[in-house]
């Protein structure tokens, strides 16, 4: 195996495009011409151009944040805002991003407060510089303390309870809640919410950075506990993998989910997944950016000192059929 001839590999690389001409796939590839302008089109606000920084704790490569970002971009396009998107999952480095935005003299900051204590120092600088701040996604209990004037997000525990109630209504009593990142406060809160309503809920930790390990661990769990009647995934890609694990384990447990993507919506329509709990991430991005524009426009604040809830919204078969086209567009 150590004797791989790289020249041969290079030749193979050169031949590939030629092969490609004769090897077109008849379906399933990229759709030619992506269709309508995703930035909303329409008219742009006549207010002067301002600059807003959106700073999240997203780990690179999480589809959820794509949707948040699309919402923010659409609001920015409508409101004549130059949007700067930055993210870092590490609390300390996220706060440095906030400080950099302050140094750049942006006109508004929208940020997630996954680690509010880590942000407070940087946000004091923002306050001193007179930069308005809103928070989104995480931080519903802390946003006023750190100086944000509004918050847009879903309460994770409330979302968990909503899922629990829906499962109780459907007659499930032994759920397994699959957490893809051990020690993540929001994910733990979702499972805790489910457990409040359905006391027999069990938590299963899997390694979210490796789908093969997600599949084999869930398979193991379903083989070990045959009485499990529903498995809950806490993110769309993980739920899709749980579906495969269920097949492998030959289990007849139902599958439910949190969050959405296009494939998940298709599976709900096909009745392979019973429902998902959506926190409408597009709205979080859109409203956070738009509220900064409103604040600039007339000093408005939204929410009256309370967090503005963008969820939980239960999406079952009926709802899924109606929103399938938006999922395809990547905004649900």
């Amino acid at each position: 195996m150590g004797k791989i001839n790289w020249r041969r590999a290079a030749v193979a690389l050169a031949i590939v495009p030629a092969l490609g001409l004769a090897a077109c796939s008849s379906e399933g590839g990229r759709a030619p011409a992506a269709g309508s302008d995703s930035n909303g089109g329409g008219e742009v606000a006549s207010t002067e151009r301002i600059k807003v920084a959106l700073i999240t704790h997203a780990a690179p490569g999480d589809t959820f944040w794509d949707i948040v970002r699309k919402g923010a971009e659409e609001a920015a396009a409508k409101d004549n805002i130059e949007l700067q998107y930055l993210s870092d999952p590490d609390g300390g480095r996220q706060s440095q991003l906030v400080e950099q935005a302050v140094d750049q003299g942006v006109d508004g900051i929208a940020l997630t407060l996954a680690k509010p204590d880590a942000m407070s120092g940087a946000l004091q600088k923002a306050a001193a510089a007179g930069i308005p701040v809103v928070s989104l996604n995480a931080g519903e209990n802390d946003f006023l303390d750190v100086g944000a004037f509004a918050h847009f997000g879903s309460d994770e525990e409330l979302a968990g309870q909503a899922a629990g109630e829906k499962m109780e209504e459907l007659g499930y009593s032994k759920p397994v809640c699959v957490i893809q990142e051990q020690g993540h406060v929001g994910l733990e809160a979702r499972c805790a919410g489910v457990k409040e309503i359905v006391p027999d809920t069990e938590v299963l930790y899997v390694q979210g950075t490796d789908m093969t390990q997600v599949e084999s661990t869930v398979t193991a769990k379903l083989q070990a506990s045959r009485d499990v009647d529903v498995v809950i995934g806490l993110g769309a890609p993980f739920t899709m993998t749980i579906l495969k694990a269920k097949e492998t384990a030959n289990s007849d447990a139902a599958v439910a989910s949190f969050d959405m993507n296009q494939q998940l919506v298709d599976e709900i329509v096909a009745e392979n997944i019973i429902f998902t709990v959506d926190q409408q991430p597009w709205l979080q991005g859109y409203l956070a950016v738009d509220s900064l524009w409103q604040n600039k426009r007339g000093g408005f604040t939204i929410g009256g000192g309370q967090a503005t809830l963008t969820g939980p919204a239960i999406v079952d078969k009926e709802v899924a059929e109606n929103i399938a086209e938006f999922a395809q567009e990547g905004i649900r």
């Binding site: 490569g61 589809t63 950075t209 789908m211 599949e215 890609p237 899709m240 993998t241």
Partner: peptide, 12 residues
């Protein structure tokens, strides 16, 4: 096995 690949996978 999974039809799609998330770009952030594999780290660690």
């Amino acid at each position: 096995a999974f039809d799609t690949v998330q770009s952030g996978e594999g780290i660690g």
